[in-house]
Design a protein around this nucleic acid. Structure first.
Length: 269
DNA sequence: CTGGTCACCTGGAAGC
DNA sequence: TGCTTCCAGGTGACCA
């Protein structure tokens, strides 16, 4: 579920409450996530969380002598609750901070909790991530350069984390609508101008989603337990057959790389 | 290298 | 009501 905006909303909520606080205990109820939760994670008590950063869809908790790397997969959420709150099904891991705890819930268990003593950017899962979409590094020229020699369609390219980090299925679809580009357009055929438009659309879409608290379709809640509302503003995502909010033509659905793509045949070329 | 497919896992909705 | 099938915010591994 969580794409960049949901991870960023989570990060901001956690940073406000946890930065500078010491881990007083760790509870691992279910270590079978995307990768087994390493035994070392159970012995983090005593360390202080200095800061919380984000790279793509990864959250990085700086603990001084190492980083805790968190990923929410398809169905994960991180909530701050009073320590001692009864655990529900799928509440796999708690990080205790005195009277507060950070709790990972993840029904599908595609998420990850990893520890690394190396700089996190050097970790094998992060080392090959592409440009941060909200950074200045992503602009029309950069996107044009990334797309220029690629035979794939633009939509799967946007979702390829080695190219751009953090754009998932919802926001790839929504960004392409805003840019007026069909998801099936071949990346290499996009003009410099259309790439500039798309780069702006990606940033505008992600920023608007963050302001709305992210999207909550099934599972996602922010660290305070509140759902996001951006799903109410979708132009195309999960709107197949319904009229385009701009021109009225029915939204179409096609499948690319086993993921659903949605577009308006009138507004997107 | 590239592009395409499969696998991992659970739960909700739709179909019969 | 109950069973079956399909689908879902991700991404590493594997193949040609």
């Amino acid at each position: 579920m969580p794409e960049l905006p949901e991870v960023e909303v989570t990060r901001r909520g956690l940073a406000r409450r946890l930065a500078g606080r010491a881990i007083s205990g760790v509870v691992v109820r279910e270590p079978r996530l995307r990768w087994p939760v390493e035994p070392g994670v159970r012995s983090l008590a005593g360390r202080t969380v200095r800061s919380i950063r984000r790279r793509g869809k990864y959250l990085l908790l700086d603990c001084g002598d190492g980083h805790l790397i968190l990923h929410l997969g398809m169905s994960g959420s991180l909530r701050l609750q009073p320590a001692g709150t009864a655990a529900n099904k799928h509440d796999h891991i708690d990080l205790l901070f005195g009277d507060t705890m950070l709790r990972l819930r993840d029904p599908r268990r595609f998420g990850a909790v990893l520890w690394t003593a190396q700089p996190p950017e050097a970790h094998r899962l992060l080392a090959h991530l592409g440009v941060e979409p909200l950074s200045r590094a992503l602009d029309g020229a950069r996107l044009h350069a990334l797309a220029r020699d690629r035979r794939v369609a633009i939509k799967p390219l946007l979702m390829d984390s080695r190219t751009i980090a953090g754009v998932g299925n919802i926001y790839a679809n929504e960004s392409l609508f805003r840019a007026g580009i069909r998801p099936t357009a071949r990346a290499s055929r996009l003009s410099r101008e259309r790439c500039a438009r798309l780069a702006r659309a990606i940033k505008d879409t992600l920023r608007a989603a963050i302001r709305a608290g992210g999207s909550s379709l099934r599972d996602f809640v922010a660290s305070d337990g509140n759902p996001g509302t951006f799903q109410q503003r979708y132009w195309v995502y999960e709107r197949a057959g319904r009229p385009c909010r701009r021109c009225g033509e029915p939204i179409r659905r096609v499948v690319q790389g086993q993921r659903s793509s949605y577009f308006c045949p009138g507004c997107q070329r």
